[in-house]
């Protein structure tokens, strides 16, 4: 029983990372009705830059530069989205494919600039002992940042005019345009915000478990799984989806054998999607 408690709490801590990666994915889905598959690549880019700039200048400058580079990378895909929107009349699938290509491009960039070795930073050499469970203080940092971001994203989407406009233009683009909402500018700003969130997630992954140049797709899929499991329409659901997947993953790694342990989380997502109501109700932009 005690062991189960340890697996669950470690699962929650792992899930925080997934939840952080789910933020940008569901935010973009709400704002633009598409999925950006390069989110994990922004995170890796931000992490790699934070590692190298942090190593040669100082960690704080590294973290800020890393996040900034993440924002710039997603601004690039935001510009591509605007260009495509003009030509393709907004077929969301085109952007999904474009972002996939961009993710591969970023992976090569990271490999060329920063090499094939893993990126990791570990400032904490001691552990907290909470009820007999040893936990790195970094996990505490992740939880605090995760909760702050939940609050910030919630306020931004549901308590500001920016958020209202974003939800309105995702819900009905034509109506939003007629109402004088600058849909294109809003979409672009949503990409920048997604890049910011992915960059923060990337820096936290760098400081928690580390990554290498090829981790991008793994991170995207982890975040995507978290984002869809309880419905793509709300970033808050994405965060809790991340926690749920984290818990299922650690419990299955603890009790199931071998390859089965990696299968269970996917099975869980599949079951929730087929049996549950998540993701079915309402158009984009409904309440979280």
């Amino acid at each position: 029983m005690y062991e189960l408690l340890e697996f669950s709490s470690r699962g929650v801590l792992l899930g925080v990372t997934y939840g952080l990666l789910a933020f940008p994915i569901s935010l973009l889905f709400i704002a633009t009705d598409t999925v950006d598959l390069a989110v994990g690549a922004y995170a890796v880019l931000a992490g790699a830059v934070a590692m190298f700039v942090g190593g040669s200048v100082n960690p704080a400058v590294g973290i800020l530069t890393g996040i900034l580079v993440g924002v710039l990378a997603s601004a690039a895909i935001g510009s591509i989205s605007l260009m495509l929107g003009r030509r393709q009349k907004g077929d969301p699938l085109v952007l999904v494919l474009a972002s996939f290509g961009f993710a591969i491009f970023l992976e090569s960039v990271v490999l060329t600039l920063f090499g094939k070795d893993p990126f990791i930073r570990q400032p904490f050499t001691y552990f907290w002992n909470i009820g007999g469970i040893r936990i790195s203080p970094q996990a505490g940092v992740n939880v605090v940042v995760g909760l702050l971001l939940i609050a910030a994203v919630y306020v931004l989407l549901y308590r500001t005019s920016w958020g209202r406009d974003v939800r309105a233009s995702a819900n009905n683009e034509r109506a939003a345009l007629l109402a004088g909402i600058p849909v294109r500018a809003l979409r672009f700003s949503a990409f920048m915000l997604a890049g910011l969130l992915a960059g923060i997630a990337g820096v936290l992954v760098l400081y928690t478990s580390g990554m290498d140049f090829a981790s991008g797709m793994h991170l995207t899929l982890a975040g995507f799984g978290a984002a869809i499991v309880f419905g793509l329409h709300g970033p808050l659901r994405g965060f809790f989806g991340g926690l749920a997947i984290g818990v299922v993953e650690t419990i299955s790694a603890g009790y199931a054998n071998g390859g089965l342990a990696s299968l269970v989380p996917l099975l869980f997502i599949f079951l929730v999607l087929t049996l549950g109501r998540g993701g079915r109700q309402g158009p984009a932009g409904v309440r979280a």
Partner: peptide
């Protein structure tokens, strides 16, 4: 015995 996929980032469990 315990195992993890090659790309796992967290193996505390």
């Amino acid at each position: 015995m315990a195992s993890a996929p090659l790309k796992s980032i967290e193996v505390a469990a």
